[in-house]
């Protein structure tokens, strides 16, 4: 299997902290895969994101991104391969206007202006922000700013996109818009794009091919969304909302209604309840 990210026995401890944020963590992500990393606040998942593009330097272990060891010598090449959307929409908006911000990554890579004049509007169109090209960030909502951040990444066409709780500070509408934009992008690029989304959002996690659960700096579980969701209310401890069908099952179980133990999505739970009803 062709792994685009390999994390081998990584440990990291913040200078001001007494415990390790990541403790001997190993995982790998295949090229073209969409992986959600979940875990409660402080579980170490955002630390992992920063280690991947050398914003933090691991105390121990090795990370390989697209065949390159992540170290000081390779860091700019590695950063070229990874686009990252951070949590706070305001604090990652560098440009004075939307178009300027999208161009920032291109400017850093020394792309010709003529080329930028094509790439910037195209990237903005991709996230449906083309009408806002000359707007200043003050006049944008959080969801719009995150879409601009995504456009800035689309413009430089990286192989990997990391969403570091990119929807955590948005209202439901903004969240849906950002998730829809990512879904569309992944759909277009297919195996050419690997998505790593660090999230608490059940809708965002449900889109993934695989979910990795991190707790206390270690990987504690992994599986398909259906497998992970089947733990029901315990998902809350893992740092994820509980899908509604699982919430209802748990509530029914408390009222001594016998419910199936395997994971059911909403449609199947409706069917199950309907059959139960017609049997009676």
């Amino acid at each position: 299997m062709n792994n685009i990210i390999e994390v081998k026995n990584i440990s990291y401890q913040y200078p001001s902290s007494e415990t390790k944020a990541l403790d001997n963590l190993s995982l790998s992500i295949a090229k073209g895969e969409w992986v959600a990393i979940i875990g409660h606040n402080g579980s170490g998942k955002s630390t992992l994101a920063k280690l991947l593009n050398y914003l933090l330097v691991a105390d121990e272990g090795e990370i390989i991104v697209d065949g390159q060891v992540v170290n000081e010598a390779n860091m700019w090449q590695v950063r070229n391969k990874i686009g990252m959307v951070f949590q706070n929409p305001e604090n990652q908006f560098v440009g004075a206007t939307v178009a300027d911000d999208v161009a920032f990554g291109l400017e850093n890579r020394g792309i010709d202006r003529a080329e930028m004049l094509k790439l910037v509007p195209a990237a903005l169109k991709e996230v449906q922000m083309d009408a806002f090209a000359d707007r200043e960030p003050t006049h944008l909502s959080g969801g719009q700013k995150q879409r601009v951040a995504l456009a800035g990444i689309i413009a430089v066409a990286p192989k990997i996109i990391i969403l570091d709780e990119a929807t955590a500070m948005l209202d439901p509408k903004g969240r849906q818009e950002v998730i829809a934009a990512i879904r569309k992008l992944k759909h277009q690029l297919g195996a050419e794009l690997t998505v790593l989304s660090i999230t608490h959002d059940i809708d965002e996690a449900a889109d993934a091919d695989r979910i990795i659960v991190i707790n206390d700096g270690q990987m504690v579980d992994e599986g398909t969304p259906a497998e992970i969701f089947s733990v029901g209310p315990r998902l809350l401890e893992l740092g994820l909302d509980v899908p509604f069908a699982e919430q209802l099952k748990a509530a029914l179980r408390q009222l001594n209604v016998p419910v199936p133990t395997e994971y059911l999505d909403e449609e199947r739970l409706v069917t199950w309840l309907w059959q139960l009803n017609s049997k009676m």
Partner: peptide, 15 residues
């Protein structure tokens, strides 16, 4: 969800 579960339980019992 609590209200829904309760109604379902009553409904199923009635059935």
């Amino acid at each position: 969800v609590e209200q829904l579960a309760q109604s379902l339980q009553q409904y199923l019992q009635k059935g």
